[in-house]
């Protein structure tokens, strides 16, 4: 093998060049948008911004965090729903997974069956919308949390992790007189922290990225708007004109910003948290993926 390594062929060079091309295609859009978000909006309209801003300014970010209350509100709402949604989701999935990992639990089979069916059948868009309406969750914060509290896939991943915990640990605790909840909280949860971290990351990314529930259930409540939804609205306005961005850039408002440049700044703000958790994400999610594959 070592000898091979020194023999660089034409093929190897083409391969590396191709991969560099892939990297450029993947990263260029993000760098381009970062540059535009840091560039003067009037200047941007002239075109020609690539990965470096020409007339550097923080005006677009100031617009979000300073002068525009709604965008600031949207940022905090995104953070809030991510935190609350992740915490409640993790607690729910872990608890349910524990009862399913206990094969001696009297309702083990029944609860497991109820859960697994939901992976294959779903009511669909309209019945779910009607349910949310009847429950009075329209324009309520709970609509971000309750409907996606549990995903069968996550529960199964946690349960398969719990299955690998030696039963002797639980038994010794039981002999010491611990009840099931104490065993869960004191023994199972600390041992499951790696898989809990994985699921927490999945849930957090899902919450941070979601926009459709705001669109469908909470668009008439300004207090519940999120960053993704605000971004989607700007996108939608631009789309009405046939997606032609030039005409949008013409209507520059005060402070040297316009919706198009603010859009880029929101995109960056919405991407940064993903980048921050990315090292952890990519460390854990392959485990989750392979676990899921084994189970199914």
């Amino acid at each position: 093998m070592k000898k091979d390594f020194k023999k660089w062929t034409f093929f190897d060079i083409v391969l590396v060049l191709f991969m560099v091309f892939v990297l450029i295609i993947t990263l260029y859009p993000f760098l381009n948008i970062l540059a535009i978000s840091l560039n003067n909006a009037v200047d941007t309209a002239k075109g020609g911004i690539h990965i470096w801003p020409r007339e550097f300014t923080f005006a677009n970010y100031k617009e979000i965090f300073g002068s525009n209350d709604r965008l600031l509100q949207a940022f905090f709402m995104s953070v809030l729903r991510t935190v609350v949604g992740t915490v409640t989701g993790v607690i729910a999935s872990t608890m349910l997974a524990y009862t399913l990992s206990r094969r001696d639990f009297v309702f083990n089979k029944q609860v497991g069956f109820l859960l697994v069916i939901t992976m294959f059948v779903s009511g669909g868009l309209i019945p779910e919308y009607m349910l949310i309406r009847h429950l009075g969750l329209i324009n309520e914060f709970a609509v971000y949390i309750l409907p996606m509290l549990i995903s069968a896939f996550n529960v199964i991943i946690i349960r398969s992790f719990m299955d690998n915990i030696p039963p002797a640990l639980e038994e010794s605790a039981k002999i010491d007189g611990a009840n099931d909840f104490t065993i869960f909280w004191r023994i199972i949860v600390p041992l499951c922290l790696p898989v809990i971290a994985t699921i927490a990351l999945f849930l957090a990314v899902g919450q941070w990225n979601s926009w459709f529930d705001t669109y469908l259930y909470a668009r008439s409540n300004e207090n519940l708007t999120t960053l993704q939804f605000e971004l989607m609205k700007i996108l939608d306005n631009a789309n009405i004109s046939g997606g032609d961005v030039t005409s949008q850039n013409a209507q520059v408002i005060a402070d040297q910003t316009n919706p198009q440049s603010i859009k880029m700044a929101i995109t960056i703000i919405a991407t940064v948290p993903i980048l921050l958790v990315y090292p952890f994400l990519q460390k854990y999610f392959v485990t989750g993926l392979t676990l899921g594959a084994v189970k199914s």
């Binding site: 859009p29 948008i33 990225n209 993704q228 997606g243 880029m264 995109t267 991407t271 993903i274 990315y278």
Partner: peptide, 13 residues
């Protein structure tokens, strides 16, 4: 890992 809102914005840009 980025949402389709961001993805669509990138494609349109």
């Amino acid at each position: 890992f980025v949402s389709w809102v961001i993805g669509a914005n990138i494609v349109i840009t």
